[in-house]
């Protein structure tokens, strides 16, 4: 069966298939292993009961929403203390609270964010103003 303008059709279809299969040839068949954010900071090691502001599952998916709420509370409403569901109080602060426990930003936050395709310093863009904890490599 004759294909008219076969040359152009072939080029077009090759481009189409090439673009669609981009993820396949871009990764060359290797999938990076999912990250394991490290929880071995000095502060966390000393905790008797290792727990975050919210249960772990909720933190995994909802930590940006907490940060958003905290930011609004502090910057707009002037409230600085947060009472968690279990009665514990936290200072609503990115630098002074989250990063006090998670002082290993590159081993913790960045691990996930790089894997999820958020660029290190730009998204979350928070670190253009807030100061990340000093880490000894």
């Amino acid at each position: 069966m004759k294909i008219y303008d076969g040359k152009y059709i072939l080029i077009g279809l090759l481009v189409f298939v090439g673009v669609i299969t981009f993820p396949i040839w871009f990764n060359l068949g290797k999938a990076a292993p999912p990250p394991e954010p490290k929880l071995d900071t000095p502060v966390i090691m000393q905790m008797a009961q290792k727990q975050c502001v919210l249960p772990r599952e909720e933190m995994r998916t909802g930590h940006m929403q907490i940060l958003n709420d905290w930011r609004t509370q502090v910057v707009r409403n002037g409230k600085r203390m947060y009472v968690a569901a279990d009665g514990k109080t936290y200072e609503m602060s990115l630098q002074n609270e989250c990063m006090r426990c998670h002082s290993n930003k590159t081993q913790f936050c960045d691990q996930c964010h790089t894997y999820a395709g958020l660029k290190l310093d730009s998204t979350p863009y928070c670190w253009t103003c807030h100061v990340p904890p000093k880490e000894t490599k």
């Binding site: 993820p23 396949i24 990764n27 068949g29 290797k30 999938a31 990076a32 999912p34 990250p35 599952e57 995994r60 998916t61 909802g62 929403q65 996930c112 894997y115 999820a116 395709g117």
Partner: peptide
């Protein structure tokens, strides 16, 4: 209704690496 994106990515990557 958030989902765990890391797991989604794991699934997506496993699909494009045929595993």
């Amino acid at each position: 209704t958030k989902v765990d994106l890391l797991k989604v990515k794991q699934l997506a990557m496993s699909l494009v690496t045929f595993n």
